[in-house]
């Protein structure tokens, strides 16, 4: 008789592929979809939760961007510091994506950038940054300790652009680069990144 195996790949390459109770949010909607089709089984955290509007008006797009950011954050909320931490983060996002403040020529924040931003915060165990956005719809996280500044542009697919300016004995030093979230601790190591990430910083 053959032995059985019950191990699963730690880095599954294939996205995951029977009638249950109704669906409401991202997981139940996609779970039901996966079951009824048994073909494609990829769980994107945004799923059905994005408001669907055909209205392309800026305020609708910004409301959608806010909703996507919040849904993305909620999917990993059990790993965030506290509900107060989450509430404050949401207030920052509401301010950032306020239609009255938003430059009409800028693209609203894209979902891939929100996902990278949240994955990065949890991975770095970083305190809440200041928030900004690029012209082309990427979130910008900034940390400032005295005159030492770290700015990270969060692009889709865990890609980040970073720039540092720090005061040294010989004056202001700057450095910049592009990498992935996983490599950030390594590339920022020369600049003592804990000054920006730790709560005591």
């Amino acid at each position: 008789m053959t032995r059985t195996t019950q191990t699963v790949a730690a880095h599954p390459r294939t996205p995951t592929a029977l009638p249950p109770s109704g669906a409401a949010g991202a997981y139940s909607t996609q779970m039901n979809y996966a079951l009824s089709n048994a073909l494609t089984r990829s769980f994107k955290p945004l799923g059905d939760s994005k408001p669907r509007g055909s209205d392309s008006h800026l305020s609708t797009l910004l409301e959608n961007a806010k909703a996507i950011f919040k849904v993305t954050t909620n999917t990993v909320a059990m790993h965030l510091l506290s509900s107060d931490w989450r509430a404050r983060l949401f207030r920052q996002v509401d301010s950032l994506l306020d239609a009255e403040e938003w430059d009409e020529d800028d693209k609203p924040v894209v979902s891939g950038s929100s996902l990278t931003f949240i994955r990065m915060l949890i991975f770095l165990k970083a305190r809440r940054p200041g928030l900004g956005a690029t012209n082309d719809g990427n979130l910008v996280a900034s940390w400032t300790t005295g005159s030492n500044r770290l700015t990270i542009v969060c692009k889709p697919d865990d890609s980040v652009r970073w720039v540092v300016s720090t005061q040294t004995d010989v004056g202001c030093e700057t450095a910049a680069g592009q990498t992935t979230i996983l490599r950030l601790p390594v590339v920022l190591q020369p600049y003592n990144p804990q000054q920006w990430f730790s709560d005591e910083g």
Binding site: R128, P129, G130, G132, A133, S142, W143
Partner: peptide, 8 residues
């Protein structure tokens, strides 16, 4: 959106 804010 392009002004720097104090952390958090």
């Amino acid at each position: 959106s392009k002004l720097r804010k104090a952390d958090g």
